[in-house]
C-alpha cells in the first residue's frame, strides 16, 4: 500500500505560498503594522502642504522605509502581438517602494514563440516560464512631490525554454543543398541582465504608467549541442539586445 507522503506536494506548496501572499496583502490592506500605499499617500499629501524643499538637518529621507507597493503588467508584448508579432512574453511584477528611492522588483511570466522566417524556417517554442529580479533606482527620491519618477534599472532574468525547428536547409559551395531537416527537443536555460532607464507617471490615485528601455546582454544564452535559442521567454528574440516595456502599475 502506498504511504501518504510526508513532504508537501508542489501544488500544495504553491497553494500555501498563494495563501501566505494573500494574507499579507490583506493585512496590509487592513492597515496593520505595515501601512498601505494609500495610507502612505494620504499621509504624504497631508505633509506636502507644509513640506519644504529642504529636509530638516539629520534627516536623510523624506519618505518612509516602506513607502508602499504595487503590481504591474507589461502591456508592450500584447500590443506587439496586435502588430503581428508571432511571439510574446506576458508578465506580472511586484514592486516595493523603499524611501521612494529603491524599488526592488520580482517578475514572473510566461513566453512563447511560433515564428516562420522569410526562408520558411519554422521555430516553435512552447509556453514556458521565466523569472526576473532586480531594482529600480529613483533619482528624485527626496523631492516633496515625487509622484512622477525616473531613474535607472538593473534586473536579472532566467528562463527555461524548449524549441523545435523545422524546414532547415544547409547549402555549401561544393555539395550543394541538403534538407529539409528538423531539430526537435532543444532545451535552453538562459540567464541575462537588463540595464537601462525608466519613467513612471502617476495617472490617478492608484494607477501609474511606466516606460523602460534597456540593454540586455546574455550572461548565459544557454546554447546546446543542436543550436542556439532564437526566442527566450521574458527576453524576446535572442539576437536583439535592446528591450522596451510599457507598464501599468496598480498601487496596493
Amino acid at each position: 500500500m502506498r504511504k501518504p507522503s510526508t513532504s508537501p506536494s508542489p501544488i500544495r506548496l504553491a497553494a500555501l505560498v498563494a495563501m501566505f501572499f494573500t494574507a499579507n496583502v490583506s493585512l496590509l490592506a487592513q492597515g496593520s503594522s505595515i501601512p498601505t500605499t494609500s495610507a502612505v499617500k494620504e499621509k504624504r499629501a497631508e505633509g506636502d502642504a507644509t513640506a519644504s524643499a529642504t529636509l530638516p538637518e539629520g534627516q536623510k529621507y523624506r519618505y518612509a522605509t516602506f513607502n508602499g507597493m504595487s503590481v504591474s503588467f507589461n502591456l508592450f508584448p500584447p500590443v506587439m502581438n496586435l502588430f503581428g508579432k508571432d511571439y510574446g512574453s506576458y508578465e506580472g511584477t511586484l514592486t516595493i517602494d523603499l524611501h521612494r528611492r529603491f524599488f526592488p522588483q520580482a517578475t514572473a511570466g510566461v513566453g512563447y514563440c511560433n515564428a516562420e522566417s522569410d526562408d520558411f524556417v519554422r521555430y516553435h517554442s512552447k509556453m514556458r516560464p521565466f523569472l526576473k529580479a532586480g531594482m529600480l533606482y529613483n533619482f528624485k527620491y527626496n523631492e516633496p512631490a515625487a509622484d512622477d519618477i525616473w531613474g535607472v534599472l538593473l534586473r536579472f532574468g532566467y528562463a527555461y525554454s524548449e524549441a523545435n525547428v523545422s524546414n532547415l536547409y544547409y547549402t555549401d559551395a561544393f555539395w550543394g543543398e541538403t534538407g529539409p531537416m528538423s531539430i526537435d527537443g532543444m532545451k535552453f536555460h538562459s540567464v541575462w541582465m537588463e540595464l537601462g532607464g525608466f519613467i513612471k507617471v502617476q495617472i490617478s490615485k492608484h494607477l501609474s504608467a511606466g516606460w523602460d528601455l534597456s540593454w540586455k546582454p546574455f550572461l548565459h544564452r544557454g546554447s546546446v549541442r543542436q543550436g542556439k535559442p532564437y526566442f527566450v521567454p521574458g527576453y524576446g528574440v535572442a539576437t536583439s539586445q535592446i528591450g522596451m516595456g510599457f507598464h501599468v502599475y496598480f498601487d496596493l
Partner: peptide, 14 residues
C-alpha cells in the same frame, strides 16, 4: 553529421 540551428535569418550550419 548533425544540423546546428544558428537563427531564423541564417538557418542552420552542419
Amino acid at each position: 553529421p548533425y544540423p546546428y540551428f544558428l537563427d531564423m535569418e541564417c538557418g542552420c550550419s552542419m
